[in-house]
């Protein structure tokens, strides 16, 4: 058993997992926010399509999104490199959950504020930018944290489309050195990534509760 190449493989895996999580996290944050805003937009067709997006991607397995991009899209002449394929699949999937959180945040803001904004003569865009989004972002950070923790765990599925992340390396090690406990080690490595996120969510949740206490 070669401990050195072991370490190297797991380290490569950890870096790739972190890269996947950060890239997909940022893209899904932007995409999800846009879709979340569309879901409550005054424009009917936008609202219908955005709700449809959320409904569709929430109800299908992530594996299908990834396989569609990896095996399917090249047939339509669109070939993304492996890592990018993983990022896009994860982003498209996670965006649906981000959109739900953003929508819930927007809808929780009282009617009074919206009417007040209207009365001040603000346009819809202005109202979003100046009144709603700033409030919403403070409110949605804890649930978004939960979404991103799930995203980190979900990156493991990208091993099925040969993204060389943690799970993939664990499988390589398990196969090459007949050492199945490597999955336990990899599991705890995911725990190490998600733990700080979970703590942050906890702290934020407590703080927002204090803020809301009357």
């Amino acid at each position: 058993m070669n401990a050195e190449s072991w370490n190297l493989l797991l380290r490569i895996g950890l870096i790739t997992t972190a890269g996947l999580s950060i890239a997909a996290g940022l893209i899904s944050l932007v995409l999800g926010t846009v879709i979340g805003i569309f879901r409550v937009s005054p424009v009917g067709p936008l609202r219908v399509l955005a709700s449809g997006y959320v409904e569709f991607f929430r109800n299908i397995p992530l594996l299908i999104c990834l396989a569609f991009i990896f095996y399917g899209l090249p047939k339509a002449g669109i070939t993304f490199p492996i890592f990018e394929a993983g990022v896009i699949g994860l982003s498209v999937y996670t965006a649906a959950f981000v959109a739900e959180v953003v929508r819930a945040g927007l809808q929780s803001i009282g009617h009074g504020q919206i009417e007040a904004g209207r009365a001040l003569g603000l346009s819809y865009i202005q109202m979003l930018r100046l009144v709603l989004l700033p409030q919403v972002f403070g409110m949605v950070i804890p649930p978004l944290g939960t979404v991103f923790i799930a995203l980190v765990k979900n990156t493991s599925v990208a091993s099925a489309i040969v993204v060389p992340e943690l799970m993939y390396q664990a499988e390589v090690i398990a196969g090459r050195y007949f050492y199945p406990n490597v999955f336990l080690i990899a599991g705890f490595m995911y725990l190490i990534i998600t733990l700080p996120l979970a703590l942050l969510v906890n702290v934020m949740e407590k703080r927002s509760q204090i803020g809301h206490r009357r």
Binding site: M167, A186, G187, L191
Partner: peptide, 16 residues
């Protein structure tokens, strides 16, 4: 701990 593990890891661990 179990909640923090990716489901795929659990499947592989149990399987092996």
């Amino acid at each position: 701990i179990i909640r923090a593990f990716p489901v795929l890891i659990l499947i592989f661990y149990v399987f092996t």
